[in-house]
Design a protein around this nucleic acid. Sequence first.
DNA 1: GAATTCAGTGAACGGCTGTACACTGAACAG
DNA 2: CTGTTCAGTGTACAGCCGTTCACTGAATTC
Lengths: 223, 223
Amino acid sequence: MSDTANARTLSVVSEAVEPVSRQERKQRTRQALLDAALELLADRGFASLSLREVAKRAGIVPTAFYRHFASMDELGVALVEESMRTLRGMIRAARRRPGGYEKLIEASVRTLYEHVRAHEDHFRFLTRERYGGSGEVARAIGVELRLFSSDLAIDLARFDQLRTWTTEDLHLLAGLIVTAMLDTVLELLDAHPRDAETDGRLVATAEKRLRFLLSAVPHWSSR
Amino acid sequence: MSDTANARTLSVVSEAVEPVSRQERKQRTRQALLDAALELLADRGFASLSLREVAKRAGIVPTAFYRHFASMDELGVALVEESMRTLRGMIRAARRRPGGYEKLIEASVRTLYEHVRAHEDHFRFLTRERYGGSGEVARAIGVELRLFSSDLAIDLARFDQLRTWTTEDLHLLAGLIVTAMLDTVLELLDAHPRDAETDGRLVATAEKRLRFLLSAVPHWSSR
DNA sequence: GAATTCAGTGAACGGCTGTACACTGAACAG
DNA sequence: CTGTTCAGTGTACAGCCGTTCACTGAATTC
């Protein structure tokens, strides 16, 4: 060995060369904890996983956990934030889309589909813990989801046919769209078998749902 | 003391007089376990409650639990069955209803509302554990809910306007109705504040959702 | 180069967990 | 009346849990 190049292998990530600052290392371990939790959440609820378990999978000793989170609940909230960042990324992607009415549905569902498949763990976490989540976590998700629905209502108001609708009716429609799409997310997450044909069928159903909901728009009178 | 009238107080239920057969006593303890679990589930997930905890609240020693269920998972499935009996009771009640189209919506939502308020614990359990439920439990709920949706599709086929629809479209509509109503159940369960006005608002929203979905019916072409 | 900071370590604690086992005593069958 | 069944008891054990504490040693600061 020529010089000091053989840097110590860290327990979490084995980037050999770079010096990596202390806070950078800390950041990585924090991420390792979040990733570890997400992996364990693949087939169980958040409430059922323990601090020790998550720490072990992240490659650190249980007590080191506290250097990053004061409790599992705090990690849960961080997980909500991370997942919500993914969700918001999806929505941003869905906003820059073609103009046509029918095209819009196809493009939106396509965006949803791709994001769900690319971040299954985040979406699984959000949909699973939306209820049943241990207080703090469920509340954080609920707030974000309602914000999402409100944003969608505002977006909807831009369309010609909806310009004259009351905000209440816009929220009604937005709520129905969101729950319908959440249902699609759930179907995608426990699709069986996991093949292109099944995915295609689910995507087609999702589009049909949206088309159905929007077909009511021209004939709806609030009363 | 005059005679043998001072019967021993049972740990679970203190019915003093009747002799009560052995299997009747067992039945009562079993029910006490289910009730205890349901009470504990008021503000936590099923996965987070322990055998010992449930046994203690039911008034028996932990080991006696095994006289009734082989595991907590088995109790969970029993809880699904019990809750589903409540749900089916609701559906049966909703089926004998007035004929009119608009009246039908009002009566259905009223039935839903009354059943949810009368059996909050059952509905909370079902909606919370539908996902996040520990495998067995979530699967049992999913199966029953899909059955429910299919039954609704069959019911829908009886209406004049829907007689010509394909079964696929009927399932589409039934699915949208079920998820919309499940959303209403969730809103009712964490209504805040818990007063008549809030309930009234939620019921009105639920009716509006149904009216919106049904307003699409005359104009929907499947494609 | 010396002093300080701090992410990660390892042993130890008290508490709760599921489950095995031998038991008691009232309800039951003959 | 006698023997059997079995719901509920009490003790015990090994294992995981969250959390405490004093520690190490490399990155950072001065």
